[in-house]
Each structure stands twice: as structure tokens, then as C-alpha cells.
Design a protein around this nucleic acid. Structure first.
Length: 493
DNA sequence: AAAAAAT
């Protein structure tokens, strides 16, 4: 099977060849002929399967050979995030360079002026996120009555993000006579309903089992105790491996993204961050730095989990196990792209056990556990004594320690965080040294509250615990005051 | 529970 067999025009074929592609991916091979025949289509496919080209290529052909209508867009592509929309626009520019087709990228976070100007001049293709599209529509800047092609990309993600009502409204603004393509990695009921309502006799193409993970990706679960300090320590050790060329590190919260990036930078890593609270220009800039290799670590929220196509990402780390199993599949899918191999590490704490179970259920595979073992003496001596000298911790030894992942022992089937190793780790961290334990009957100097900080006055100490943000990596035991005697035994566990 | 998307 080659691109030449799919019915694309010669001009487009040469553009594809020039871009270095010879063989269509399964979804391209199946979708392109149907799209060219103007059929409605449901494509069940993950990102990284060549989905974008599967609709961009035939769309270009249809539009380039159809009659253009002045000032009236003829096609609309809806994407859930700005980055994805921009990425599709890039594809359009790449393959449509030989045509006279014009395009407008309608996304938020950038000024509206240029977008309105482009619309006034007249464009053939709109690539948009729903919010900005609705906004422009509401201002009367767009007329969609000439839009005879609609692509709803990443429909399941649109659903997650609450865009379905917007999508439905947008659909009603388009002519009834049109071709609609809907792509989704999964097919939950609301997406099926949407397809029933707005697609006509669609052809359904499924290229891989929904939510199955790429076999090119070697996955590991790394049990860690739940403190930010321990997790960062574990992460740094994993990042120190030789084969980590570059990595995207996912966190569940934007605040964690910021904190982790700061921490990694202070440890000498070349890292950057991306999340939805950043200016769009900043988001693009960070992404470019990563793509260009100026930084080799990108700490990200789930804004980067789906669809982002960055070539040659060797590793994905889940600093936090994702809450939603779908997100796991999408996150690790940022590596192992285009047939390359990739490695994904997920740090798991005891609280993540249920999430991990759901992930393994969804992907239908048990993920190997990797025990990191004890922190080497020279690596983090202070980490062995979390109550002492945290702020005076010796700087990290020059040259990152390289550790090859130890192969997991075959009989390791314990739950995340419940392994003997994990217990030991947690114990060594939690148990106060005997000499530090409060004496019975004495006024208890809390061993479990942080030691006095230089910047906290002594008399503040008992009624004011430094705010979470001010603290430096102390295990968060959730304890605020002196510890009653009867609890000391429990604490040692 | 979070993040994303219009400002």
C-alpha cells in the first residue's frame, strides 16, 4: 500500500513525498479514500497514528479542486486545545503549500485583530478552538453557511472539557448538506450520541483498540513514598540515567508543575514548563525550546498530554499518577512516536493504588514495578535524616549519578506502595530516631513538626506552622502540633 | 480531586 493508491492528486502526492512519507499509516490508508468520496467518517484512533494527515490531505484535495467562495470559509476543523489547533495549522501549511488555499487559525490567548483581518480577506479553512470560534461568531465576524466540511477532532477530549454544547451549537450554524468527520480515541455514550445526531451514514474506522497502549513504550511503575521531597529525589535519580535524552514530566496540578520545574532547575537540569495558566506566547516559546533541544526536560500539565507531536521524546515521566486512566495512555503516548521506542516511568504512592488498578484494567496489561532501592549515601545523605539540617543539605554530587533500572524481581506483584521496600522507605523517613523521641512526661518538643526555621521566630513556632509553600521539602505528615505519647508508637510504623 | 477553553 502506498500513498499513490489512495486517490490523492499528483500535486499532493509530491508534497507528501517531499515531506518524507512513503507509506500511509493504517488510519490514513482507510480514511483518505472515504473522505475523498465525501463520506462522513468516524475515526477511532489515538494521536500519533497519523490521524491529522488522514483528514488534512484529502481536505486539501477536495478544497483545492472545488470552487472557492470569496470570503466564505468552506471547511472548519475543531480542536480542543490551542496547541493542537496550531499543530494542525502547521500541517495544513506544509501540505497545502502548493495550493492557493488560505487558512485562519482561530484560538484564544492571541489578539483577535489578525484573525478578524484574515476572516475579512476570506479564507478557505478555519482551524479553531471552540471558545474563540464562538466568540468571533457572536461578534458577527464569521459566517459558517458555506462550510461544507467539518472535522471534530479529539471528540472525547472535547467532552472531558465540556465543549459538547458548544460543538452542538456550532454544528447547527453549518449547512445541513456537508461532510462531517469525527475523530476520537474512545467512544463514550455522549460522543456516540453526538455522532448519531450530526453525522450521516458514517463509515467507522478503528485503527487500534481504544485505550491500548503503544507496544513500543516500555512502562515502569516506581513506588515512592508520597512526599514531594521523596518524589523529586526519585525523579532526579531516574532522570540521571544515561538513556534519558529528553523527557516530558507530567504533574496533576499546575502548582506542582511550577514547583517541580523550579526544583529541577535548581538542581542543574535544563528544564522548562507548560501549563494553562501561562501566556500563550510563553507556552509556545517553551515548547519550541524543547523541540529545538535547548532544554531537554519539559514539565507539563495535562495541557500537553494529548496529541502533541514532538519528535524524538525518549522518556515520559508521570510525577503524579494521573487520576483518569485515559490520561495515562495519552501522556505516555508522547514518547514512542512514529515507531520509535520510548520509556515511561510513573511514580506511584500508596494513594495511587486505585488509579493504577484502573490504568492496568484499561490497558489490559500489568505494568512492571521498579524498586529504586535506598538512596545512595553520597547522593543524598541529608535525605536519610529528614528532620535535621534540611536546609544545610550538601549540594548534589557533581555529575549526576547514573543508575540503570534494576530489573524487577519476577514475584513482585504487590500493590504500589505496599511493598516491603516501600514500607522500609516510609519507615526510615517517618520514624524519629530514638534519641529524638520525646521523653514521657516532658514537655514535648514536637519531633514531627518542622524544626525551627531561621526565618521563623521561636515564639511563633508552636502556633504557626510555615505555610506549605514556604516549607522546604519536608515530608507532609499533616501533623500540626505536639505529638501525644500514645501516638509515638503508631508513628514509628 | 485537575486541567482545559473566551476575556
Amino acid at each position: 500500500m502506498s500513498f499513490a493508491d489512495l486517490g490523492l492528486s499528483d500535486e499532493l502526492l509530491s508534497a507528501v513525498t517531499d515531506a518524507g512519507y512513503t507509506e500511509p499509516t493504517p488510519i490514513q490508508a482507510q480514511a483518505i479514500p472515504s473522505v475523498l468520496m465525501m463520506r462522513d467518517l468516524i475515526g477511532i484512533a489515538q494521536t500519533g497514528t497519523g490521524k491529522t494527515a488522514a483528514f488534512v490531505l484529502p481536505m486539501i484535495d477536495i478544497l483545492a479542486h472545488g470552487r472557492s467562495r470569496a470570503r466564505m470559509p468552506r471547511s472548519l476543523i475543531l480542536e480542543p486545545t490551542r496547541e493542537l489547533a496550531a499543530q494542525v495549522a502547521e500541517n495544513f501549511e506544509k501540505y497545502g503549500a502548493g495550493t492557493k488555499l488560505s487558512m485562519a487559525l482561530l484560538i484564544g490567548g492571541v489578539s483577535m485583530g489578525d484573525q478578524i483581518k484574515a476572516l475579512e480577506k476570506g479564507v478557505d479553512v478555519l482551524i479553531a478552538t471552540p471558545g474563540r470560534l464562538m466568540d468571533l461568531f457572536g461578534r458577527g465576524n464569521i459566517l459558517l453557511t458555506g462550510c461544507s466540511m467539518l472535522v471534530i477532532d479529539e471528540a472525547d477530549r472535547m467532552l472531558d472539557m465540556g465543549f459538547i454544547p458548544d460543538i452542538e451549537e456550532i454544528c447547527t450554524k453549518l449547512p445541513k448538506q456537508r461532510q462531517t468527520l469525527l475523530f476520537s480515541a474512545t467512544m463514550p455514550a455522549p460522543i456516540k450520541r453526538l455522532a448519531d445526531k450530526f453525522l450521516e451514514n458514517p463509515k467507522t474506522i478503528e485503527v487500534s483498540r481504544p485505550a491500548s497502549t503503544n507496544l513500543n513504550i516500555k512502562q515502569w511503575l516506581v513506588p515512592v513514598s508520597g512526599t514531594a521531597f521523596k518524589k523529586r529525589d526519585a525523579l532526579r535519580r531516574l532522570l540521571g540515567q544515561d538513556e534519558v535524552r529528553n523527557a516530558i514530566i507530567f504533574c496533576n496540578r499546575k502548582t506542582t508543575v511550577r514547583e517541580l520545574n523550579k526544583s529541577l532547575k535548581s538542581h542543574g537540569f535544563k528544564s522548562g514548563e507548560i501549563h494553562g495558566d501561562m501566556e500563550q506566547a510563553q507556552r509556545i516559546a517553551e515548547l519550541d525550546l524543547f523541540k529545538d533541544g535547548k532544554i531537554n526536560i519539559l514539565v507539563a500539565s495535562d495541557v500537553a498530554a494529548r496529541g502533541l507531536d514532538i519528535k524524538g521524546v525518549s522518556h515520559v515521566f508521570n510525577f503524579d499518577a494521573p487520576w483518569h486512566p485515559d490520561d495515562y495512555v495519552h501522556r505516555i503516548g508522547r514518547t514512542g512516536r512514529g515507531g520509535a521506542t520510548g520509556i515511561a516511568f510513573t511514580l506511584v504512592t500508596a494513594e495511587d493504588a486505585e488509579n493504577i488498578q484502573n490504568i492496568e484494567k484499561l490497558t489490559g496489561q500489568k505494568i512492571d514495578r521498579l524498586e529504586l532501592g535506598d538512596t545512595p549515601e553520597a547522593d543524598a545523605p541529608a535525605a536519610e535524616e529528614p528532620r535535621r539540617g534540611r536546609r544545610e543539605r550538601a549540594p548534589r554530587a557533581e555529575g549526576r549519578r547514573e543508575r540503570t533500572p534494576r530489573a524487577p524481581t519476577p514475584e513482585v506483584t504487590v500493590e504500589a506502595g505496599a511493598s516491603p521496600q516501600a514500607d522500609r522507605d516510609a519507615g526510615s523517613e517517618a520514624a524519629p530516631r530514638p534519641s529524638e523521641r520525646p521523653q514521657r512526661g516532658s514537655r514535648i518538643e514536637p519531633t514531627f513538626a518542622p524544626p525551627p526555621r531561621r526565618d521563623v521566630r521561636r515564639d511563633d513556632r508552636n502556633d504557626r506552622r510555615p505555610h506549605r509553600d514556604e516549607r522546604d521539602d519536608g515530608p507532609d505528615d499533616g501533623w500540626n502540633g505536639p505529638i501525644p505519647d500514645f501516638l509515638n508508637a503508631v508513628i514509628a510504623l
